[in-house]
Design a protein around this nucleic acid. Sequence first.
DNA 1: CATTTTGCATGGAACGTTCAATGACATTGA
DNA 2: TCAATGTCATTGAACGTTCCATGCAAAATG
Lengths: 346, 346
Amino acid sequence: MQVRGEEQAFKGEARRISIVDVAAAAGVSRQTVSNVINGRDSYYSESTFERVTAAMRALGYQPNRAAQTLRSRRTMQIGYHIFGEQLESMQGFTLHFLQALVKAASDIDNQVLVFTHHGDDPLGVFKDLVARRTVDAVILSESRIDDPRARFLADSGLPFACFGRLAPDLPQQWVDVDNVAGMQPLVDLLVAEGHQRFAYLGAEGEEYWKTERLAGFTTGLARHGLRLPKASVYRGTDTAIRRRARQLLTGKNPPSAIVTGSDSVAAVVVNVAHALGLKVGSDVAVTGFDGGAVGLLTEPTLTCARIPVERIARELVTRCLRQVEGGPNDEPGLLVPTEVVRGGSA
Amino acid sequence: MQVRGEEQAFKGEARRISIVDVAAAAGVSRQTVSNVINGRDSYYSESTFERVTAAMRALGYQPNRAAQTLRSRRTMQIGYHIFGEQLESMQGFTLHFLQALVKAASDIDNQVLVFTHHGDDPLGVFKDLVARRTVDAVILSESRIDDPRARFLADSGLPFACFGRLAPDLPQQWVDVDNVAGMQPLVDLLVAEGHQRFAYLGAEGEEYWKTERLAGFTTGLARHGLRLPKASVYRGTDTAIRRRARQLLTGKNPPSAIVTGSDSVAAVVVNVAHALGLKVGSDVAVTGFDGGAVGLLTEPTLTCARIPVERIARELVTRCLRQVEGGPNDEPGLLVPTEVVRGGSA
DNA sequence: CATTTTGCATGGAACGTTCAATGACATTGA
DNA sequence: TCAATGTCATTGAACGTTCCATGCAAAATG
């Protein structure tokens, strides 16, 4: 029926060493080893701890996840759901965040399972997830204010948290970047450098973060008593941005600083400036918003507001797991401040 | 010690319905239900199959993964390892492939766990993976000819497969795009359209696929008795590509078709052509190589050689799992042909 | 007819861990 | 002194499934 290889054969497989082997080696019981593993430190003495850990190391023992899960009902796995139809401009960022998430999870001994919907039923994946309990919690990316995925998970009782805003009746389960406040330190920096004439360029589209970043910039300027003329603000496609940047920089009374809504837009602007023979950083300042790989590939590197993906990932993971443990769940949604990355472009 | 929420409390939790509930409802034994679930069709009759499936549906039963894993030693999970330091240009593609992988895995009831190395020990993740058996197999991206990860996994006995080439002593475990042959149909297409003067632009770097695509293009031309002058070939950064494209298109005797090594390079070329007032597709033809989201965002959309990520993902998954099942493992590494996507750019 | 095979079904054991209850012994307090 | 408390450790049971061996009637075989 079932063809079998040589080394892989089910029976022939060397019996994996288990907790009882460790117990025997250390001269204690199963449960004591278990207690040591799970750090229930009031249940064992210093000396047994030493002996047990020594035995574990000596035998190269690692607890079996399936057995732990079966008994404790914790999978130590977190689901991460991404959309199928991601904008090209978002893909780099999504991967960047995914890495941070994997890191944050593994720091507390959890792993990340990736899901994406396919087929007609966008919630199908989640139904399965709920029924089989193959993850302890779920993290959603790009959540909208009224996200059907969040709604479904809330109803089903599976703990979750979102990267993005969420409806006010689910006030606890989201973490997002503070786009508005995030612009302030950049503005402060530019003003301190003596810049007076500003322009803003951003990607087209009605996503809230795009409008927020622009809003953050204008209020940031207002704090310094400066105002941004309508003509100095533009949002459009990459090509349009390119054209517009050239216009701005070659026009009379050009801006001394161009603030952008994302690193990729900033990269385009840097390119245009170069093409015009301008020295970015001295002739004209350019700032970005993201802090991913793009900003490191420009010449000079970008000065930008960096989205602290590590912090956000950590925050999402802990929020999820707090729910899993049934801990208090009364913290509000969280707006995380950005960090200023000082590159050479401003 | 451990604070508990109301609904989440461990004891208070409604007992999940298990295989014995289904067995009782259907009036058969545990084992029979198990046989039905696992499709061991020679062990049950048509009528019991009906009753059992009816009972499963009625109770909303889904087998518990942890219990299955514990007993059968199969996690139904595949690990996917990505590098931390991915080039910006690769990120979009990596995510694209990840989605295909998740799809391919879930089609055969498997899930994908993502790993990335962090810290000093790049193989640490894999050690853990091997010891805890939290996945049945691993898929590696961007494997090099002599990849230490592959070497380690081969030694440890954990089944794996790579997206990319691999050393000849591990001849079975890789799948890759046929970059050389992939260019041929594009060339055929362009020649059939009457193009005679070609140019090639590609990204800088020594990765084998970059040189292969260029090689594929020149041999493709050779088949039609055409030769590509040295001056018509260029590889460099985005900015350099932009400059070079402008040179080519504004020079005398400009190429009627510009073939590129990737969609993102093609997008840049399309941009330049637009800026020069040329109509892409009629004034000048441009082709890409990838078939991801980038090519759909240009105007017109790109004609390109599409990397069949779905096929590659499927192929990798089946190769892994065949090893897991101990089946024959004697197929050689696989070069997958590309598909031509006819956009408006050529 | 006796025997083997086939089709279908069953119950006990095991996978490796954590939960829950209990125990032995030393220390503290009245 | 005796009970109460605290510290450390142990044992039996359970989590929910699949493996393994076995059973039994009907069908096929010699």
